[in-house]
Amino acid sequence: MGSVPPPIGGDNHAQRHDHDDGGLADIELRVRALESLMIEKGYVDPAALDAIVETYETKIGPRNGARVVARSWADPAFRRWLNEDATAAIGSLGYSGRQGEHMTAVENTADVHNLVVCTLCSCYPWPVLGLPPVWYKSAPYRSRAVIDPRGVLAEFGLRLPASTKIRVWDSTAEIRYLVVPLRPAGTEGWSEERLAALVSRDSMVGAGLATDPASLAGEAAA
């Protein structure tokens, strides 16, 4: 390994860390200092920063995608629309914009399992899934999803038969992919709300399946 170049801002970060930092890590100090500079110079409004954080903590997350999947399971016309023009179909439920400007939905079938990755950065469909989890942005997932997806899925506890085809979608452009997992058996006649509770974030990336309702019944009884 070569030496890591000093971070922008120079050695002061390390020196600051030695005193009066209340035990904060370098990166915390670095972000805090940058935020102060940006506010003081008038480039960002602190109230806007708070609003951005609040949006992704409370409004935009994987429950949005779960509602899209549930609607697709329950409503054949919506399912056709989602497959033909996912951006518009998803937009009709109120989910649109940043990192979801160009959506494509990909349905799992009995024979084909879909898995989404961004090997080059962290492209992820924010309006329907929220911010990506750490693993999605990490080197282990990004490196292996395209060469050993079966091994990656096994680490998520998902062991697919060798006969199940895997299709990996590397998000190298601005198209954002949403996996529509298979609807579990035994959910005929369920409301969209009940169906949505079966749809996990991981299942909409392809790193899992929709929850088997039998396991939910077990939890309720416990």
Binding site: T119, G130, V134, R142, S143, V152
Partner: peptide, 20 residues
């Protein structure tokens, strides 16, 4: 950044859905 196909980074560590 061009990580596709590289080896040696180890296992993928999943995380709960609520951890934003």
């Amino acid at each position: 950044q061009d990580l596709g196909g590289m080896m040696g980074f180890g296992q993928v560590a999943g995380e709960p859905e609520g951890e934003v």
